[in-house]
Design a protein around this nucleic acid. Structure first.
Lengths: 359, 359
DNA sequence: TTGTATGCGTTATCAT
DNA sequence: ATGATAACGCATACAA
């Protein structure tokens, strides 16, 4: 290895201030040459090539991505804005997102809105300030930050929306077939002999809440079953277990005749089961329970939950892939909607009934 | 509002290229003045102050944090490196971290090692490249990236380790009183009359796995109960439910006489319960089960889990606060270790026994 | 292949 | 309070 000729490089520089200039001085070449060689822009390997690589290695040189970003206009970072990291829903999506971004070399800046519109606005603002090359967002339910989407468009920052489709703006979207999934699930209940089927919906000001209710309605309609409002109770997406307990109670008291309940999420389903057990009902013997999501807990509880599986990891992966295509401009399509398939997972919380009045 | 005098600002500039220079030209001042005013460095409010703020507002100017970082040497970003985002453990910690960082104005760059040492090394490398001002890390179990810690020290990048203490390097650490928590839990079992207490440990090459086993041993010792190797089975930190089922079986077959099992995590506890139920055992009547963690699932399963609560959100919060102190140099202390208190949460999976041979 | 000149957007410094 | 100059670290364009 070369012993670099003594120059006026201070200890301090060696410890934390190693840059192309430092290396250039030590190697007696210009900074540009160092930059080129370290980026592999020179094809032939010469003495200088090796010398410079060796020095960089010894000094622990790491490229300054901030400086590179400023020069090249590409930050290699992606903003991910979700509503609640501390949930059983988003972490798997983030895992999927990160798996793609990591491979492509993008860094992920994560922010959490807690369903607060001001924080959402601030988060998007920060992303712009940080010059992100793209954004993945799961908008808050009461999406009132419409102007921000427009602004991102003006700045030509690609945006992919996940989970909750934004109703008023055309955008790239990745989600699941909420409506069809719900419909298939309820169809299964109907085929199992259930007619009086209750539903504990998600919040009906949310995309997924509405879609899943639609699916429920469609399944009833296609089977000639009348839709009754008293079989419906609206839930929310916070404090899910307790919502399940409360609203499950409300539903049963309003409509004690139901033989099955379709719940908008696995967690509310678990809450409902908790309540039903408490009042002495047996699941699925007395009442069948159908969840939505297939979260890990679905197999931990008893009875194990029959539910509609959402491919969370895949949502994240597809969203990140789509975003990268938009960034790299390899995908010139107009705004597109990717709906991933759901899958009905039949476990223990649902049961066929035979003595149905119609059957 | 001022109508800015017509200058040669193109539409394209207005859309995405608004910077201090653009605003300066429109306001007939120098870029420096714009910069100062937008940063609030001028105390007196003059016509120009308002004029510039108004123009910036109208044009949707957002500061370029990349450029500012390069100039000021402060990136306002923090790297967070964890082993598995898709778990019931880290998301809450991240929530705690983010709550602090958001308030202070730092962005969070998140990366996921999946317990892979190469990805961990790469992740730290990326953080350095991105000029992060600090790092929070939960190291992989077989921590072989020791040189990286040294390198970060050389670069004077503050580092806070969470959850898994790094054994060979002195570092700032935030975790919980694993040993004491485990000891208190096992003490509770002993006070409830249990003597033959099995343990399904975490991986014993991990800090937490070792500490919790230590706590178990100490509790036995202090109560004059002999430690028996055949009461111990080693688990891992992946695929936890199945590990619980498998290793629970192994433990019961090895030592059918045990009346209680202390599990290294809530999830393995749930796995163990699953297995025990399958072979017809009743919980807690036949065997008491004690978990560790108090994850949300602890109250969803049946019986609800008696467990040792780890304050996850608080771990994240304290780690972020400590990191910020180190960055802002308001905390000049040597490397410090913060151990948060655990809490024994008594629920339904444990029971007193009376016909103990000693009692 | 190598080097010179220049600029990315911002701010620190020094002067006015 | 304002402005002129320079610099952060890197990479592009052009010339040699």
């Amino acid at each position: 290895m070369d012993t670099p000729k003594s120059k006026n490089i201070t200890i301090k520089n060696i410890k934390k201030g190693i840059n192309v200039k430092t290396i250039a001085e030590l190697a007696n070449v210009s900074p540009v040459t160092v930059s080129r060689i370290l980026r592999g822009k020179n094809k032939r390997i010469t003495k200088t090539t090796e010398k410079i690589k060796s020095i960089a290695q010894q000094l622990g040189y790491k490229k300054n991505l901030i400086a590179r970003s400023l020069k090249t206009g590409k930050s290699w970072s992606i903003g991910v804005l979700i509503s609640e990291i501390n949930s059983s829903f988003f972490p798997e999506i983030i895992d999927g997102i990160e798996s793609v971004l990591y491979k492509k070399g993008y860094g992920m800046i994560l922010a959490n809105t807690h369903e607060n519109p001001e924080i959402e606005a601030q988060g998007l603002h920060n992303f712009v300030s940080r010059q992100v090359n793209g954004i993945i967002i799961s908008p808050i339910i009461d999406n009132i930050n419409e102007q921000y989407f427009w602004e991102l468009k003006q700045r030509e920052i690609p945006l992919v929306v996940i989970d909750r489709k934004y109703p008023f703006v055309q955008c790239d979207f990745v989600g699941v077939e909420d409506k069809l999934g719900a419909k298939n699930g309820v169809n299964y209940l109907i085929k199992s002999g259930h007619i009086k089927i209750g539903m504990l919906t998600g919040p009906l000001n949310s995309y997924t809440g509405k879609e899943r209710l639609e699916g429920y309605k469609e399944a009833l309609m296609e089977n000639g079953i009348e839709f009754k409002k008293r079989y419906i109770v609206e839930g929310s997406y916070v404090n899910l277990i307790n919502i399940g307990i409360e609203k499950g109670k409300e539903l049963i008291q309003k409509s004690p005749d139901i033989t099955a309940i379709f719940c908008g999420t696995d967690e509310t389903a678990i809450g409902v089961i908790k309540y039903l057990k408490k009042i002495g009902k047996k699941i699925p013997e007395d009442i069948s329970i159908l969840g939505f999501g297939d979260l890990p807990i679905a197999t931990m509880v008893e009875p194990q939950l029959t539910t509609i599986k959402q491919p969370l990891y895949e949502i994240g992966k597809q969203a990140a892939l789509l975003l990268c295509e938009k960034i790299e401009e390899t995908n010139k399509n107009e705004k597109q909607t990717i709906l991933l398939k759901t899958e009905l997972i039949i476990r223990e919380s649902t049961k066929k009934i035979i003595n149905s009045s119609i059957k």
